[in-house]
Design a protein around this nucleic acid. Structure first.
Length: 846
RNA sequence: GGGGGUGUGGCGGAAUGGUAGACGCAUCGGACUUAAAAUCCGAAGUUGCGAGAGCGACGUGGGAGUUCGACUCUCCCCACCCCCACCA
């Protein structure tokens, strides 16, 4: 054994050996309980960043511990490999997307291997590989077959210069294209959708079956699904056969309607406007259309509206009320029209005040209805036959009447929209359908999958869907009638690819089926899923949706894909920001003791922010591994903060972990260099034995699924190391066994170092990663003395080392006899004595 | 505006209602060294009295409450962070 901790040699040696011996292969299914540990797979952007290191280390620790606790573990890795950056690289640098992506995957795979993550690389998947997207396409056909995939016209962001569709993120706040700078138009295109709204209610309800998901993720999903319970009501238009339909959650306020409002985009606007008002209303529509989303929804945006001159009849009162158009009504939500009840809705109140519309109180409770809206429930007034009812009862009664008389019904409304999956892009999974002039939309037969993405496409970033330019690919015979037909040229949203990848790992090499249901139903659902909170809504919601659809197709036997979810915090770096210009300054240009802008001399704001190139606050994992080794990097990200919190990068703390690993190394190395000192007091032996068993107990509990606190687990490792360091006789059996336990407990966190030390301590037993996880001896935790804490009126005044079997009366007598206690009860009356066995005694005096 | 979360030393953070600040970082003192680095040992919440050993007071964002006892439970308030948001 070398005297120095040579992490480079050790890590290289064991990584080689583990790979050669394939120690991380997934076992066959057997009687042992299964454990499926999964990190969200990365987009292969080029290099690993610290967030990845943190994410994958957390999952790796769990996988390593569960293996040794007798589980059969599935711990795979793959690549979310379709997406826009590859296409941009092609446009900017002329590298084909496939080549760019595969280079990045190779680089990142290498970096993952250097971290010593125990993946079963045999099951690696890449969503851009034909043997993967073949099954993405097969899934699409399943959705199509189930009636869950359909086409409809939808508004998209259209760049008139580049002649292409843009994602929302590619349109800046001024409504201009990120690439061409052109003003983006809304264009109506026929697009593919998945009918996720069919599952809205179940996606909402079954959140309750996920107790081990963070509350905030569940709250975000609930919010996104956005269920409201209310009523659908129809208001007949005066002098027309048209009716204006509204959705309201407050049917109990319907007697307070003083106008109805249409969204400017509502198709009835022009039909219903009176001739006198038409020019003004069209003007208004145009000025609203010119606004960007951001302008329209900006805070404190004054509500703008215009009367159409037409009127509707309130079917409950027979009253005539005006029809308005206003920009505060959203066409996309509900019916695109609302009933205006100024007395009991804040927006309507503001609007009514602005345009001097009547404010009529129909629910009691408001101190001054002209001053502000009363949005709480209350007793109905001015509401005809419904007067005197409490809001909830009134809702029911009013819905009943509307249903009976045929002008409305109870309705549940969701914010969730069907999922638009069409992308007019190249680097994605082709949608496997063919458009035939006589047969219509014809699915590509499953036997003809995959529809392979052609490689000879010229990418320019303009001119619409790149695939459409390749006639040799587009023109195909119709699979049904054989006549000339055309392929669909849209590709799928990449969120589709990642909505099912966790189902593929249990049977990743299957070339006959998407997976063998026997295998996937055995390994899945995922027992522990770990990833960034940025996926709290979309990826996790889509995956849940896919799981439920596949269950309904008979492929899966479970309802939810991820049993337990951990959203790890961001990794942040020290950031220097000029408070005036808001620019970040690289730390190399800043004196940390007096941080100033090197150009302006401005005192800089110092703080931690999410690592990014533009903030000059990033740290490359490769650099850290080069300087300190993978084990130190792993220890640092695990120790510095609990997993769900932000992690502030600090090189001094990295060095602290490096020191700690060095201490362990020396402890093992020096144990044979020291001479036995002879007699060790029995007391010391017991103390060490206790420390060893406490460490086993605490670390095991910290790595329990519910706890999973690696930071405190490592703190326990440090305590045990301290206890061993303090022990006087390294030749003693208890020390020797303590050393072995320490190394065993260290193994999930610092797998290379632990393996190296183990091979020195106990070469005959083989890899430490195959050793059973240590269990603690409850008997060793028992103490024969304890510290009795003595309080007077709840304040600690003294403590006392006492034998465990001291009778309670004796303890009280001893405690009362102490001078420090006497001082505080002197001259007072003892009212009560509280005794907590083996812990404390509290004397209550006054 | 709605929802979720967080507030503990100089810093990151520990604490089944029972000695608040484990463990680490930074700091200070000491040992080793010609010196430095590395390493080892030790100190340290704030504050008052004391030469010192020590003895007190205060202390987990603020205020009430429950309790013998509250970082922990309940209510009110404040600050900050995240998500959603003119969603009818």
């Amino acid at each position: 054994m070398e005297s120095k901790y040579n992490f480079r040699a050790i890590e290289a040696k064991w990584q080689q050996q583990w790979a050669d011996q394939q120690v991380d292969r997934t076992p066959e299914i057997d009687a042992r309980p299964k454990f499926y540990a999964l990190s969200m797979f990365p987009y292969p952007s080029g290099n690993l960043h610290m967030g990845h290191v943190r994410n994958y280390t957390l999952t790796d620790v769990l996988a390593r511990v569960r293996r040794r606790q007798g589980y059969r573990v599935l711990h795979p890795m793959g690549w979310d490999a379709f997406g826009l950056p590859a296409e941009n690289a092609a446009i900017d640098r002329g590298v084909p997307p496939a080549q760019w992506t595969h280079q990045n995957i190779a680089q990142m795979r290498l970096e993952l291997k250097v971290l010593g993550l125990s993946y079963d690389w045999e099951r690696e998947v890449a969503t851009c590989a034909p043997d993967y997207y073949r099954w993405t396409q097969w899934l699409f056909l399943q959705f199509l077959d189930a009636g869950l995939a359909y086409r409809k016209a939808s508004k998209v962001n259209w760049d008139p210069i580049d002649q292409t569709v843009l994602a929302n993120e590619q349109v800046d706040s001024e409504g201009r294209s990120w690439r061409s700078g052109a003003k983006v138009e809304k264009k109506l295109l026929t697009q593919w959708f998945l009918r996720i709204t069919d599952y809205a209610e179940e996606l909402l309800q079954s959140l309750d079956s996920l107790p081990n998901w963070p509350d905030r993720v569940k709250a975000m999903q609930r919010n996104w699904i956005g269920k409201s319970i209310g009523a659908y009501l129809e208001f007949p238009v005066v002098g027309s056969t048209e009716k204006i339909a509204v959705f309201t959650t407050r049917p109990d306020t319907v007697f307070g309607v003083s106008y109805v409002v249409l969204a400017p985009e509502h198709p009835l606007v022009k039909t219903l406007t009176t001739p006198e008002q038409l020019a003004a209303v069209e003007d208004f529509q145009q000025s609203v259309a010119a606004q960007t989303e951001e302008m329209r929804t900006a805070e404190d945006q004054p509500k703008r509206g215009l009367a159409t001159g037409a009127q509707v009849i309130n079917p409950f009162t027979g009253e005539l009320v005006p029809i308005w158009v206003a920009d505060y009504v959203l066409y996309e939500y509900g019916t695109g029209a609302v009933m205006g009840v100024p007395a009991h809705d804040e927006r309507d109140h503001k609007f009514a005040r602005q345009y001097e519309l009547p404010i009529r109180e129909v629910i009691t409770g408001s101190p001054d209805i002209q001053e502000s809206a009363w949005t709480n429930t209350g007793i109905l007034i001015n509401s005809g036959a419904f007067d005197g009812l409490f809001s909830p009862e009134a809702k029911t009664a009013i819905i009943a009447q509307a249903t009976e008389q045929g002008y409305g019904k109870g309705q549940i409304q969701y914010k969730l929209r069907d999922w638009l999956i069409s992308r007019q892009r190249y680097w994605g999974c082709p949608i496997p359908v063919i458009h035939c002039p006589s047969c219509g939309i014809v699915p590509v037969p499953a036997s003809a999958l995959p529809v392979v993405l052609p490689e000879d496409v010229k990418l320019t970033g303009r001119g619409g869907s790149p695939l459409a330019t390749l006639a040799s690919w587009v023109d195909v015979p119709c699979p049904r009638c054989g006549e000339a037909a055309k392929r669909e040229t849209d590709t799928m949203d990449t969120f589709i690819d990642s909505s099912w990848y966790y189902l593929r790992y249990p049977d990743a090499r299957n070339d006959q089926a998407i997976f063998d249901p026997a295998l996937t139903n055995d390994w899945a659902p995922v027992d522990q899923y770990i990833g960034g909170v940025e996926h709290a809504i979309l990826h996790l919601l889509y995956s849940r949706f896919f799981t439920k659809v596949l269950r309904d197709r008979g492929l899966l036997k479970f309802d939810e894909p991820f049993q337990r979810l951990l959203t790890q915090g961001m990794v942040q770096g020290l950031t220097y920001r000029n408070p005036i210009t808001n620019q970040c300054i690289p730390s190399t240009l800043v004196n940390p003791d007096d941080p100033r802008d090197p150009k302006t001399g401005e005192v800089l704001k110092v703080g931690y922010e999410t690592m990014s190139k533009s903030k000059y606050n990033g740290v490359a994992p490769a650099q850290v591994i080069e300087n300190y080794g993978a084990d130190t990097a792993r220890m640092f990200v695990l120790f510095k903060a609990p997993p769900e919190k932000e992690l502030e990068w600090a090189t001094t703390d990295v060095e602290g972990q490096f020191r700690f690993l060095n201490r362990i190394w020396r402890l093992v190395y020096e144990r044979s260099q020291l001479q036995a000192s002879g007699n060790v007091p029995e007391k010391d032996v017991k103390t060490l034995s206790r420390a060893i068993n406490i460490a086993i107990k605490e670390i095991t509990e910290d790595l329990d699924a519910a706890e999973f606190q690696c930071n405190t687990a490592i703190a326990e490792l440090m305590k045990l190391t301290n206890a061993l360091t303090d022990f006087s006789d390294p030749s003693h059996g208890v020390f020797q066994s303590g050393l072995r336990i320490l190394v065993q407990l260290l193994a999930p966190f610092a797998p290379h170092l632990a393996e190296e030390l183990w091979s020195n301590l106990q070469p005959e037993t083989g890899s430490i990663h195959t050793q059973q996880w240590p269990t603690f001896d409850a008997a060793a935790l028992v103490v024969d003395t304890f510290t009795l804490v003595i309080q007077v009126n709840g304040k600690v005044r003294a403590n006392l080392q006492t034998a465990l079997d001291t009778p309670q009366a004796e303890l009280e007598r001893l405690a009362l006899g102490l001078e420090a206690v006497q001082r505080h009860i002197e001259g007072k009356t003892l009212r009560k004595t509280i005794m907590v066995p083996q812990k404390l005694v509290n004397f209550v005096v006054n």
